[in-house]
């Protein structure tokens, strides 16, 4: 089985101000996505670099080091049209992802015209109507609506429909449900699952919500301050976490079941007042300030990827 997407030691450096200090928003990330429909979650909290990673894959930012291969070719060597045909995005804020001064349908039409390559206007609309009905819309209803006449959930479905128009191999969804209500969130997530199974599209699903990640994803990578600290099959990583950070994350996740309340309350969390900026420029493991198991080596040397039970973990605890 080949690889669809491969990230090799991808690093992105940002700096504050003109001569400000530099930090690695994404640091030495290597991942690979196999060439069969699957959902790959990149999970992490705010400031973990997950959105930057998504934008690197989408060619919004260019990596400073390392490379990203799609079907074995560097994404910067692929022509625009081929790239856009194969990889499509879905963004976090449905209201910000459509221009409020234009009708959302315009972007669907443009996509078909420019990337799929249909010229005739009626054919374009027929083509769009098919995809729209797949996500539960009637083209005659949505065609004349302006952005503000849609609800957030509807706009997100429009965004999904637009992404599907090119029949992409991969959709990069950056926190696609975080702005939606919980009762609607699951509909979008279910739609992803359906698209994966019926249309054979792979997803990179970026989220901070481990519950939905567990629910839909096949693989998961947990990020912390720019580096992937644990990755593997999602059931494995989320039920038998290895890295101390993943463990803390899962322990602090509230569970929608009052029976678990006692257990959850018993596990106390320590409050650490460490500074994010300091963590970004650390030489060693970024989690060292918060880690209860930290020892000297953690502070100075970044741990390598260690494979245990098919999961990759970056922690000196597992180094033999």
């Amino acid at each position: 089985m080949g690889e669809m997407l491969r990230l090799e030691n991808v690093t992105k450096i940002f700096r504050y101000g003109f001569l400000g200090f530099k930090f690695r928003a994404v640091d030495d990330v290597s991942l690979s996505l196999e060439d069969k429909p699957s959902i790959f979650t990149i999970a992490g909290e705010s400031g973990s670099g997950k959105t930057t990673l998504a934008r690197l894959i989408l060619r919004v930012f260019r990596p400073d080091f390392g490379r990203i291969l799609f079907n074995g070719r560097n994404i910067y060597e692929i022509g625009d049209r081929t790239f856009y045909r194969n990889i499509q995005p879905i963004f976090q804020d449905p209201y910000a992802s459509f221009n409020p001064m234009q009708k959302p349908i315009r972007y669907l039409r443009e996509t078909v015209k420019n990337i799929v390559g249909i010229e005739d206007e009626r054919e374009i609309d027929e083509y769009i109507a098919k995809t729209l009905s797949y996500v539960g819309f009637d083209i005659s209803v949505v065609a004349d609506k302006h952005q503000h006449e849609f609800s957030g959930g509807e706009l997100q479905r429009m965004a999904i429909a637009r992404a599907l128009l090119t029949k992409p191999k991969l959709i990069v969804a950056d926190e696609p449900v975080s702005m939606l209500d919980a009762s609607f969130r699951i509909n979008i997530v279910n739609l992803f699952k359906k698209i994966k199974e019926e249309m054979g599209v792979s997803f990179i699903y970026i989220t901070h919500d481990l519950a939905t990640a567990y629910y839909i994803s096949d693989y998961i990578a947990i990020m912390y301050r720019g580096s992937v600290i644990e990755s593997g099959r999602s059931e494995k990583v989320l039920s038998e976490p290895l890295h101390p950070y993943t463990k803390t994350l899962i322990e602090s996740l509230p569970i929608p079941d009052p029976k678990q309340k006692k257990l959850w309350m018993q596990k106390k969390m320590a409050f650490t007042a460490s500074i994010e900026e300091a963590e970004f420029i650390l030489k060693g493991c970024r989690y060292v300030y918060r880690c209860p198991y930290a020892f000297d080596k953690c502070k100075t040397v970044m741990p390598p990827y260690i494979t245990i039970n098919e999961s990759n973990v970056r922690c000196w605890l597992y180094y033999k």
Binding site: D80, Y84, F91, M101, Q102
Partner: peptide, 24 residues
């Protein structure tokens, strides 16, 4: 803004983005 990325992924050319997305 994300809408510019979305326009780009809709295959709209750079000049089109300037004229229709930024200029308004």
């Amino acid at each position: 803004r994300e809408m510019i990325y979305l326009a780009r992924f809709s295959g709209i050319k750079f000049t089109g983005i300037i004229v229709h997305e930024v200029l308004p």
